[in-house]
């Protein structure tokens, strides 16, 4: 077999790799150890600690972020897989001092108690409303089926999503 051209691989800086991705609308160049997950890079190398460390095994949804607009679990995604991607975390929802309507509704209705699940739920609900501005209750339940909450019993969360959807119309 003739020698093949090498595909582009991430450049390295010492033991770290350097990737460019868009985080909350801004281009970010970040150097990190190649075994790190997106969750670890967001929290440890980009100081975005809004996204929470829960089970780290895909079983709770606390680490949910949007990658190219879709909710994913950042604990299961190697950061190396995110080169060129656009990542939205809970820090990216507000516009300056103006909270996202979802954040207002969660505060109004007590949809966050301990708050540990809240960042993951907010970004997941944001993706839902971007796709379905007037979701039905079953659509909300299905969209949030990958986010566990041990405090609220979910009802206030569903109501807050509905309120945010109404206010946005």
């Amino acid at each position: 077999m003739p020698p093949q051209p090498q595909p582009p691989q991430p450049p390295t800086a010492g033991s770290k790799v350097v990737l460019t991705l868009t985080v909350n609308g801004e281009a970010a160049e970040v150097a990190f150890e190649p075994h790190k997950t997106l969750l670890e890079v967001l929290r440890e190398d980009l100081a975005l600690t809004g996204t929470k460390h829960g089970c780290e095994l895909g079983e709770c949804g606390a680490c949910a972020v949007l990658v190219d607009g879709k909710p994913v679990l950042s604990c299961l995604m190697l950061a190396l897989e995110c080169g060129g991607a656009s990542v939205t975390t809970v820090e990216g929802l507000a516009r300056g001092a103006q909270l996202d309507p979802l954040q207002d509704a969660f505060a109004d209705l007590g949809a966050a108690q301990c708050g540990y699940c809240t960042p993951g739920i907010l970004v997941t609900a944001r993706a839902l409303l971007d796709q379905h501005p007037a979701p039905t209750r079953p659509q909300i339940e299905e969209a949030l089926a990958g986010n566990l909450c041990r405090c609220t019993g979910y009802l206030s969360i569903y109501q807050a999503v509905e309120q945010a959807a109404r206010k946005a119309r």
Binding site: Q4, P7, Q9, P10, P34, H35, K36, T37, L80
Partner: peptide
């Protein structure tokens, strides 16, 4: 819980993946 270190290859085609 951290992943262990590994080498990385981002395959660009089916043939490249098979070769790697």
């Amino acid at each position: 819980m951290r992943a262990p270190s590994f080498r990385w290859h981002a395959a660009t085609s089916l043939a490249d993946a098979a070769r790697a």
